[in-house]
Amino acid sequence: MNERPAPETKPRVDSLVDVLPFSDRIPRHDGEMAFDQAWEIRAFAMTVALHEELGFPWEEFQSELIAAIQRWEAAQTDLAGWSYYERWLAALGELAQGKGWLTGAELDSRTQEILDQPPTTDHHHAVREPVAVVPGA
């Protein structure tokens, strides 16, 4: 349950991050990659896992990310205002469609399905007593 990643994994992933476009814009905390939202780390991890499991060249994702950032810059006047992981997710979507892993329509309808679900329906009440107590011997 409490697994830690193998020590050689982090340098390997770091080296992928180092070659990304606009890497100075990657949010960091004390020099390490920092994520503000759970979906950001999920999108990041999904991309690296796909690269490692399916073996597509990392340059293909790099190119999609550059293109996604350029699309933003072409459409906006505030060139500095983009979010790294919003563009990351757009790039991953393009890559996935280009590879035939999914279609835009599939992705849109699944996204809508998830948005239509009320969040944590069952878990919106406060539980104010312990759910289990194991007395000391």
Partner: peptide, 26 residues
């Protein structure tokens, strides 16, 4: 992000465990 993961996992392109592993790095 969740929709993309669900579709890719259902199609057998990637396992949730592989994504979990990579997210544990950071």
């Amino acid at each position: 992000a969740k929709a993309m993961e669900a579709i890719l996992v259902e199609k057998g392109l990637i396992g949730s465990d592989a994504i979990d592993y990579m997210s544990s790095v950071y």
